[in-house]
């Protein structure tokens, strides 16, 4: 039984490392800005590859710009915390799903191929709202 549990654990680990594929890249950042990945805090240097479940955190003078592999683009404003809690994209089929959580601050979005692939395939969650993005450009603001 224990052997099976350990075996399953290994499979889960393999699946996790497989899922940790590139979903986006940092294009620019300025001021106080951090990419939080689990217990790690990464410096958002241009070209840094992002993974699903990364959180983009900025201080009062911080900004980050990000482009996803489906062409979705983000600009994260100051005093913000934005997580990409789910991201799946098939480059060949150009279909996928994405959930972004804006816990505080501001986020500008130009949606990409995921939003076009299926109705409400791209979702944005704020502390009080769940939005379904149907192909557009918008800003979400969540004051502290």
């Amino acid at each position: 039984m224990r052997g099976i549990a350990i075996g399953l654990g290994l499979i889960a680990l393999i699946a996790t490392s497989d899922a940790a594929a590139e979903i986006a890249r940092i294009k620019t950042s300025s001021g106080t800005a951090t990419v939080v990945r689990g217990s790690q805090k990464l410096k958002p240097a241009p070209g840094l590859q992002l993974e699903a479940r990364d959180t983009l955190v900025t201080g009062k003078d911080g900004r980050m710009a990000v482009t996803f592999i489906d062409n979705t683009r983000f600009a994260v404003g100051p005093n913000s915390s934005v997580s990409v809690s789910e991201f799946q994209y098939d480059r060949t089929q150009q279909k996928g799903a994405m959930v972004t959580q804006v816990d505080r601050g501001s986020l500008a979005v130009v949606s990409g191929k995921i939003a076009k692939s299926n109705r409400d395939a791209m979702k944005v969650r704020t502390p009080n709202t769940l939005l379904g993005v149907r192909g557009t450009k918008f800003i979400v603001e969540v004051p502290q």
């Binding site: 804006v102 409400d120 939005l131 192909g135 450009k137 603001e141």
Partner: peptide, 26 residues
Amino acid sequence: GCATSSLVLMPDDEGHQGSVAVLEAN
């Protein structure tokens, strides 16, 4: 206190006006 999220919707760079659905509120 936390109900003040806001959305600004704009046309995309090609001038197409998309839409955003509010799937859940509170």
